[in-house]
């Protein structure tokens, strides 16, 4: 397979305006991935599938990942005036990473027996702008997996032919795989849900769709 730098250049040539970024893997023995911006993701995906030298005809695995806002502590070197002399001092600074939801696609080529190429798409945040283009028109195998991500993470896949909940029931209001998901108190094994339990349970369903 071509290196990720070559692939990045080829995707940028094939889909003008696309922003591609190489996301390094913390473990260098395992492959890094390509982050593609949502606006051009489908064009990039179609290129990866249709280009005869790449032929990524098989999207094996589609994963949703939740990245809430995190505080990262970093050691950086800054120049400081200390006693009239400029010195380089190491300082610990805290930085907040933006929150987003991510869809990760593992692509393989069945015809060339090659792969994996890991494609990542990110939403702008994890509250209100959570849509991504669906890659189901390019690879049918994404159909149920994107539905699952919609169900469990709440990413809305635009252009998906049949975007419904798949594992949870249709009336369910939350997205249980998110890191900040609060488990409800109204489990079915509660023998006789009484007032306090019902009141607590109601708090989890602001829309009032559940008791």
């Amino acid at each position: 397979m071509e290196t990720l730098e070559q692939l990045k250049a080829r995707i940028e040539a094939a889909a003008p305006g696309v922003r591609v970024e190489i996301v390094p893997n913390g473990n260098p023995a395992n492959p890094a991935s390509l982050l593609v911006d949502g606006g051009h993701a489908r064009a990039a995906a179609a290129f990866l599938r249709d280009d005869p030298a790449l032929a990524f005809d098989y999207a094996s695995n589609v994963t949703g990942v939740d990245w809430p806002e995190r505080t990262v502590r970093e050691r950086i070197k800054v120049k400081r005036m200390a006693g009239g002399v400029e010195r380089e001092v190491e300082e610990v600074c805290e930085r907040k990473t933006p929150a987003y939801l991510e869809a990760v696609y593992h692509l393989y080529s069945m015809s060339r027996k090659d792969g994996p190429l890991i494609l990542r798409l990110r939403t702008e945040n994890r509250t209100d702008r959570v849509s991504l283009p669906s890659l189901t028109p390019v690879w049918r195998s994404c159909e149920f997996q994107e539905r699952e991500i919609f169900d469990l993470y709440g990413i809305v896949f635009e252009g998906h032919p049949d975007l419904r909940r798949i594992l949870m029931w249709p009336e369910f209001a939350d997205h249980p795989m998110r890191k900040d998901y609060a488990e409800p108190d109204d489990y079915e094994y509660e023998p006789t849900p009484h007032d306090a339990v019902l009141a607590r349970a109601r708090g989890h369903y602001p829309g009032g769709t559940q008791p």
């Binding site: 893997n25 913390g26 473990n27 395992n30 094996s60 994963t63 990942v65």
Partner: peptide
Amino acid sequence: RPKPGEAYGRIEGPKGELGFYLIS
């Protein structure tokens, strides 16, 4: 406690490709 990173392991299960994707 694996170092931060991610890995995708897959085998040919009796039913098809069984994969596990882990992020540490």
